[in-house]
Structures are given as structure tokens and as C-alpha cells.
């Protein structure tokens, strides 16, 4: 192998780095619209799933436009805040603020039976990383209509089970308030919820930390919606 001078080495590396940077930034710029579209479609699919409408990446946008009739942002006192888009509001960013200043997105779905469902986004911590989801409520703002959860890297077969139907289905029909305005959230019980418990569901065997993380997520996210729920229930 030839012996190259230091000047050559410097020029070689500089040219290489510039070329590579150009190539990568061009690729990133050109692919960005497709990537953003994917993220948007996934979010729409999740929101639809929380009101029990199954969609595919191909029809999600269309179904979203059909069923999700309005969305808005409320503050900690349950008042609507103008000028913010519920869909693009970054929940992760909101959670870094003190609880009182957080903005809370609400999505309203018009169901086939003519009534509405109110969807609240959730975000929390599992065992290995973030977990998130959407929960929809009936117009009484108390009874859960549907729930969907997802995770970044929970253990397959254990914590990752929160993303399955068999874990999510039992949330339907559960209630988050007791005696009309006492917020109790929904507990995830290790060893199984008692028969007829309207505030509890079964945890996942072997997925206790994820289950507890999910319980904490429900509690911390939903309690912020309490003023909105109490003022707007029908």
C-alpha cells in the first residue's frame, strides 16, 4: 500500500465527509414527506383503534376524516384553548411542563350509533422505555369506550402484551370516577381484578412493571382531564 502524505489524508477525509454529508442530507430531505406521512397515518390508526374502528394504513386517513369529527385542546381547568392543533400537539413535550400548564388534546369521534366518544391521549413509562396509548370515553365522561396501548420496547410475550386485544378489551366499560366526581382511575391488579370491579382490570403475569407503569400512566394523564370531564359530561 502506498504511503500517503498528511496533506493528502486531510484532503481525502475532508472531501469524503462533505460528499457523504451532501448525499445523506439530500436523501433525508427527499424522504421526509414520506416518513412524516407514515407517522401521521399511524397516529390516526391509533386514535381510530381507541374508538374501536379498525383501519389499514391505506384507509386510515379517509376513516379518520369520516369518524373523528372534531378535535381541540383544553387546559388544566377544562377550558378550550384556541390556536393549538390537537393532532400535532407533542404530548412528550407537554409532559415536561408542570401539570398546571399542560395542554390536553381531545378528539371527538362520531360513532355509527349516533353518539360521540371522547378520546384522550396517554403517555408514560414502561419497563424498558416509553409506553403510550389512547383511551376513549362515552359521553358520560366516565365509562371507557375503548382503549389502545403501544410501547417501544417492552419484553415480547410479557410487558409487550399491553399492545394486544386481550389486554385492552377488559378496559371497555370500566369507570374512572367513583361517586360521580371522585377520580379513582383504573387500577391494573396483579393476580387479577375482582369479579365485577368497575375500576380494575387484570395485570399481565410476568409483566408487572409494565402493568404498574401503565396504571401510573392512566392515573397521571387522566386526572388532568378531570375538570374537562366533569364540566362536559352528559
Amino acid at each position: 500500500m502506498k504511503n500517503f502524505s498528511n496533506t493528502y489524508i486531510f484532503i481525502f477525509s475532508a472531501v469524503m465527509v462533505v460528499l457523504v454529508a451532501l448525499l445523506l442530507s439530500t436523501a433525508a430531505m427527499n424522504l421526509k414527506p414520506y416518513q412524516d406521512k407514515n407517522i401521521e397515518v399511524e397516529k390516526k390508526q391509533n386514535i381510530l383503534a381507541s374508538v374501536k374502528i379498525s383501519s389499514t394504513p391505506d384507509n386510515a386517513v379517509e376513516l379518520y376524516a369520516k369518524y373523528i369529527t372534531s378535535s381541540f385542546v383544553v387546559n388544566n381547568n377544562g377550558e378550550k384553548v384556541d390556536g393549538l392543533d390537537a393532532f400535532t400537539l407533542d404530548i412528550k413535550n407537554e409532559q415536561s411542563k408542570p401539570a398546571k400548564e399542560r395542554m390536553l388534546p381531545v378528539f371527538i369521534a362520531s360513532l355509527e350509533n349516533g353518539s360521540n366518544a371522547y378520546v384522550a391521549p396517554l403517555r408514560g413509562k414502561g419497563l424498558w422505555g416509553p409506553i403510550w396509548g389512547y383511551m376513549s370515553f362515552l359521553p358520560d365522561m366516565n365509562t371507557v369506550y375503548g382503549a389502545v396501548f403501544d410501547h417501544q420496547g417492552e419484553t415480547p410475550g410479557l410487558g409487550a402484551e399491553i399492545a394486544t386485544k386481550s389486554f385492552q378489551q377488559p378496559f371497555e366499560g370500566k369507570q374512572i370516577f367513583e361517586n360521580s366526581d371522585q377520580f379513582v382511575s383504573i387500577k391494573v391488579h396483579k393476580g387479577g381484578a375482582k369479579e365485577g370491579d368497575i375500576h380494575g382490570v387484570d395485570a399481565i403475569s410476568g409483566g408487572t412493571i409494565t402493568s404498574k407503569g401503565l396504571e401510573a400512566m392512566l392515573d397521571s394523564c387522566l386526572i388532568l382531564y378531570k375538570p374537562f370531564f366533569i364540566q362536559n359530561r352528559q
Binding site: L23, A27, Y34, Q35, N38, I39, V41, E42, P57
Partner: peptide
């Protein structure tokens, strides 16, 4: 690394799931 980033970006754009 360049190749890997390109592949990763393409996957994110076309086979997101």
C-alpha cells in the same frame, strides 16, 4: 454508516411498520 443511514431512512419511508 452512510449506507446504513440511507437504508434506515428508506425503510422508515416505505416499510414503516
Amino acid at each position: 454508516a452512510t449506507m446504513v443511514i440511507l437504508v434506515d431512512q428508506v425503510l422508515k419511508a416505505f416499510v414503516y411498520d
